[in-house]
Write a protein that binds this DNA or RNA. Structure first.
Lengths: 358, 358
DNA sequence: CATTGATATGAATCCTACG
DNA sequence: ACGTAGGATTCATATCAAT
């Protein structure tokens, strides 16, 4: 069994399954897996100008049939589930050739699907023959270890990066081309399926916490590691092919962590959870003090136990605000205002003041 | 076993599997299936204002577990495969709760996936809790009966409707709302998952031929039938619930077929397949006659057998045009021009003239 | 140097009728 | 069933050459 500190921020050379078996249980925060898709292509595909299209013809994508492919996936998925923390989550990418098999296998293993995400490609390879719809997307499965998952989701960061609208399950991102695409000395792409960093950035940023450990069992040329390092996280890569490892290590050496408000997840900070009673004890509120709406309308008074009362009776701030709004539920901390220090402020602000005082 | 003519353009009341078993083999051109999704929702979901969100709570979506759900799907999918013509295809819609199971089951049954299509919702229900990405899409599987499928795909029609670009696998379509959404006398939606006609229009139009027979084993309020009728096709609906049948029949009575260039698939007409030799026999071309590029450059001459020759030798029109363009492949019918009736015209036009003369 | 045009290329289940 | 010949088919973007 590996000692995590010994393999942190390293690429382990070897077969994914064998390496995974030597990683401790409940030790990994985030897994991104980009397994072979088992494309089952036959013959060669010509572009409309008659030249050959160079798709995936790699040895690593060959399987004897669905049975072998399924067993391969069950193997590495089981180990991923074992090593994943209950607070972590796993992402798997695939396309129609394989993702349905993987999805069913994951559900059957007890993984809990959080979302299926569509990577809608802004510049897909066209369908040269005009025989079908242009296959312009890939599918990602985002899952917790099991139904009891306590996964991380940085909702506010995603919302901020999406123009202050909550992020959806369809993402528009371009292919990995241009300078980002690793080429060998002959100008030939190093890996036939290198993923764009923009995709991994969104994946890792949305579902990780500071100092998390991110593992990729099919590391390839190391996009997962590169993005994890950029965000300031730790990674472990597993890769079989010497060539990919060589280019990945060169790539990773160049990466500098980008520390900023987004990568530090400062948008995710929660307001201090100070109950009404503490505010009363500290003198930030007093018994019989009036509370108001944002428009300055006096609507209830504070009781010694932290509840509030008016003609409707005595209720918690949440139930009272809901009552006043005619709703079933409402957050009273945002609804009520109080006078404090000659100012008219939301009572939620008193919690920050409490925090600062203590 | 049903006689197709007796059930054409009708809704058959009954259990999907039992009814499907009585439909003849290899008799259906197109199947659209919108099965229960097995959502596994628990408790109730509240909107952010505390009111209740009315999702799918129908009896028909309850199963004891994945095993029961899988067996249910294997049942109706096997029958769909049996009744489907080899020239036909089947569409199944689902979301992450069920579509991965369905996809694997279909692959295991030998269905051949042609595309997975993403219905990206332009106006999805938000994630009220801010706990995950907003689930803003559903997935469609489009499959042939088996690997030898001779499915129909109206490529040019799809391209025309997509601003003359080939249509992709991600479709932006809104939810079924407003006047299109069927309501009962109390203004309550009749069906909890009515699909938008725009979605079915694209599905049926892309993969059907005139006079096709379209079957929907989970007919609900009849969107499939309504769109099939609009396009001028025949349908068969299977539905268990009396209430849905009542509203579907009322709805279908109102539908008028829309006959136009698109629904008639006039864009899909192929140019007449008249070989060079026939043009020579008919006197539309003569031996030793010169052929030109679109710019009027003389590039070769016609031989008696329908081939053409120049300094490169004697070749078919296709090989010669490719040679002149420095390509591996090209369509000679669009490349070469000839003088005919004092006009300079593409030789392809001669095939239409031949057709008109005969 | 700026602009235009030609060329290259990206996870692909990519033809079909006829003999 | 299988081979063969005819003939139908591409979008966004990066790079590089030419103007």
């Amino acid at each position: 069994m590996y000692i995590l500190d010994n393999i942190k921020n390293k690429i382990i050379k070897g077969d994914s399954l064998e390496v995974l078996k030597n990683i401790p249980s409940d030790s990994i925060d985030l897994i991104f897996a980009d397994p072979p898709y088992y494309m089952q292509t036959e013959g060669e595909l010509l572009r409309t100008n008659g030249t050959k299209f160079n798709g995936v013809e790699d040895k690593w994508d060959k399987f004897s049939g669905f049975e072998e492919y399924d067993n391969f996936c069950i193997g590495w998925l089981k180990e991923c589930q074992r090593i994943l923390k209950i607070t972590g989550s796993v992402w798997v990418i695939g396309s129609f050739q394989n993702i349905f098999r993987i999805g069913k296998i994951m559900q059957d293993l007890g993984f809990w699907i959080l979302n299926d995400i569509i990577w809608s490609k802004t510049n897909p390879v066209p369908n040269f023959g005009g025989t079908r719809f242009c296959n312009s997307h890939e599918t990602l499965l985002w899952c917790g270890k099991n139904k009891k998952t306590k996964f991380t989701f940085n909702y506010k960061t995603m919302k901020y990066l999406n123009n202050d609208k909550q992020e959806k399950s369809v993402w528009n991102i371009g292919l990995c081309i241009g300078n980002e695409r690793l080429k060998d000395d002959n100008g030939v792409k190093v890996h036939s399926t290198q993923k764009p960093e923009e995709l991994l950035y969104k994946i890792i940023l949305s579902s990780s916490k500071p100092n998390d450990l991110v593992l990729d069992p099919f590391f390839g040329t190391g996009t997962t590691g590169a993005v994890a390092k950029r965000i300031g996280l730790n990674y472990i890569g597993i890769e079989r092919e010497e060539k990919y490892i060589f280019y990945a290590e060169k790539r990773l050496k160049e990466i500098k962590p980008e520390i900023n408000e987004i990568t530090e997840l400062s948008l995710e900070e929660k307001p201090p959870k100070v109950p009404m009673k503490k505010l009363l004890e500290r003198g930030l509120l007093t018994e019989e003090q009036s509370l108001y709406t944002s428009k300055g309308e006096e609507v209830c008074k504070v009781k010694a136990d932290g509840n509030v009362f008016n003609k409707y009776g005595t209720l918690s701030i949440h139930k009272m605000s809901a009552k006043l709004l005619g709703l079933n539920n409402n957050n009273g901390w945002d609804y009520f205002y109080a006078y404090y220090d000659n100012e008219f402020i939301p009572i939620n602000k008193l919690r920050y003041i409490y925090k600062d005082l203590s």
